[in-house]
Amino acid sequence: MSKSSKPKAARPVGPAVDPLPTGALPDLRPLHGRWVRLDPVSVARHAQSLFNSFHGFDPDGDVWTWMAYGPFDDLDSFAAWLDGREKSRDPWFYAIIDRKSGEARGMASYLRADPANGAIEIGNIWFSPGLQRTREATEAIYLLIRHAFDDLGVRRLEWKCDALNQPSRDAAKRFGFVFEGIFRQHYIIKGRNRDTAWFSIIDKEWPKIRKGFEAWLADDNFDAEGRQKAKLQVS
C-alpha cells in the first residue's frame, strides 16, 4: 500500500438502528391491570399469601418441576428464599396480586437486562394452581410485555424455558413469542441437564400482539362465569 493510500471504510451491514435504545432498566413500579396487579415482591406483604396459594394445593410439587428452586415444605423456608428475591436487582421480582381478593397468587420477573441493545427477558414465572389457565394469568403476562415495550422501550423481549417443558413452550407461542431454537446442555438444574428453548418478540411485532391481547381481555369476551368466548389471537 502506498503512503497516499487510505484504508477503505468498513461497509455497513444490516439496517441502522434509529433511535438507539435508551438504556431503561426496570424500576419495579406497580403494573396495574383489570383483574391483577403486579407489585414488587415483599416478604412482609406477600410471603404468607404466596405460600398459602400452593401449600396444600400442590401435593406433588408440580409448580416447581421446571424451576431452579422449590418445592418449599414450610413457610419459613419459603420466606427465606423470598427474602433474596425481594433484594434482587436483575432479576427484578413481582408478586401477582388478585385484585378481587387482594391475595398474591404467583410470581414473575424481568431478568438479563441488556439496556445497550434494548433487550430483556421475562421469566421465573410460576402460577399457583388457582391462577393457572385463568384470564388473570394471561393478563399478568400482558402487563409484563406491555411494560417492557411501552415503558422500558425494549426492542427485543425474550422467553426461555426447559425444552422439555411443553406447557411453557405452548404458552410462549400463545402469547405471540416466536421460537428461535434450542441451546443444548445450557444448564444443570437440580442435578439434571437442561436444554433451553428460546423465544422472542421484537418491537415491530408488538402492536399487532397488543391488539390481540386487548381484544381478548375485553369484558365482552367473557361470560358471567369468567369463561372466554373467543381464544387469544395475536398472530
Rank of each mutant, 00 (worst) to 15 (best):
S4F: 12
P7L: 13
K8V: 14
R11H: 13
G14N: 11
G14F: 08
P21N: 00
G23C: 07
D27W: 00
L28G: 01
L31C: 10
L31N: 03
W35V: 10
V36M: 07
R37E: 15
P40N: 06
V43Q: 03
A44Q: 14
R45K: 14
N52G: 11
F54I: 04
H55C: 04
H55W: 03
W64F: 15
Y69G: 01
G70L: 09
P71L: 01
D74H: 13
R85E: 11
R89G: 01
P91M: 09
I96G: 02
D98F: 04
D98A: 12
A104F: 02
A104S: 15
A108I: 13
R112M: 08
A113S: 13
D114P: 03
P115T: 02
A116Y: 05
A116I: 13
N117L: 12
N117M: 10
A119D: 12
I120Y: 07
I120R: 02
I122W: 05
N124F: 15
W126E: 03
S128C: 12
S128R: 05
L131D: 06
L131G: 02
L131T: 06
A137N: 07
T138N: 08
A140G: 10
A140Y: 04
A140N: 02
R146G: 04
D150A: 14
D151L: 07
L152T: 01
V154G: 10
R156K: 13
R156Y: 07
E158G: 07
C161G: 00
D162G: 04
D162N: 14
D162L: 08
A163T: 09
N165F: 11
P167H: 14
R169V: 02
A172H: 05
R174T: 08
Q185G: 01
I189K: 11
K190S: 07
G191I: 04
T196S: 14
A197M: 06
S200H: 00
W206M: 01
W206T: 01
I209R: 02
L217H: 00
L217P: 01
N221H: 06
N221S: 12
D223G: 04
R227P: 00
K229S: 02
A230Y: 00
K231F: 00
